[in-house]
Design a protein around this nucleic acid. Sequence first.
DNA 1: TCCTTATTGATAATGATTATCATTATCAAT
DNA 2: ATTGATAATGATAATCATTATCAATAAGGA
Lengths: 147, 147
Amino acid sequence: MSADQTSQLLSNWKNSLHQHGYRVTRPRLQVMEIVAATRIPLTPQDVYHKSLNLESPPGIASVYRTLEMLDVLGLIQQIHQPGGCHGIWPAVDGHKHLLMCRNCGQMQVIEGNEEITEYIRRIEEDTGYEVDEHWLQLFGICSECSK
Amino acid sequence: MSADQTSQLLSNWKNSLHQHGYRVTRPRLQVMEIVAATRIPLTPQDVYHKSLNLESPPGIASVYRTLEMLDVLGLIQQIHQPGGCHGIWPAVDGHKHLLMCRNCGQMQVIEGNEEITEYIRRIEEDTGYEVDEHWLQLFGICSECSK
DNA sequence: TCCTTATTGATAATGATTATCATTATCAAT
DNA sequence: ATTGATAATGATAATCATTATCAATAAGGA
Ligand SMILES: [Mn+2]
Ligand SMILES: [Mn+2]
Ligand SMILES: [Zn+2]
Ligand SMILES: [Zn+2]
């Protein structure tokens, strides 16, 4: 996430708060800045501990409340991690798949493809299920970490 | 999971304990019977509460310890559920994909396909990652629940 | 600037998981 | 079958994360 992208995200998020009648407060901004800038998924505890570096950190309750709010607004999504759940990650537009480095935690968003859609359609026929959501998460080692 | 499959699973699990030098105790058997027989993912708390119906239930600590042991032995796997993590489910042989009913929690194991393998190989080329694991989980409504 | 009230933060309450340790029970060796 | 070393248990305490409470504060429209 570049600095540009982060501030872009932040201003979108602030707009979303305004549009939904949420007040834009300092504790909320502090949490949003941390989450918008992260390159790896963060737990609520992670966010709280990062915030402690700030001059006047938010209370732990406000961290949870702000993350809950961001989730309700669809601005963040939960990432299910191997051996530990959940991390927080800025939501991506539309449906995307995720790739995560086991070593450094770095997340990468990858595009879906037509074969998977077709595969799922076949599953629906075979099982009689109506599939309305799918997760595809890939795990491995990024090129940086495998050097 | 039919009664046959359940007892098959159980005897495999007991063999595994023996082979790895774990003692086969009553609390462990009680937990294993519950987990082997379930049709939906169970949390440790779920397992514990089910066990309370038994004449002489295991202590809560033994429930956690047994589930940890089964996990270490690769006999169960963690299922990541939407809006709630984790459930416990008997491990399936090799790599399989999972389909879960949002309404009744029923799990179904589905086969992977060649297109997904090819898709992942393409991702590796594009990103430089070495992908060593992937999760594909589908969510929807089973035919029973959509009646 | 004022006023309404949404929001905050300190703290208590709750709930789940893990650690402790004296007692018990498994199972290999006899 | 009995014994003995020790793995395992269970009651309970400790820890840790999350949620609830409520008086004080501050956002933002009037
Ligand atoms: Mn997809
Ligand atoms: Mn999860
Ligand atoms: Zn990496
Ligand atoms: Zn169903």
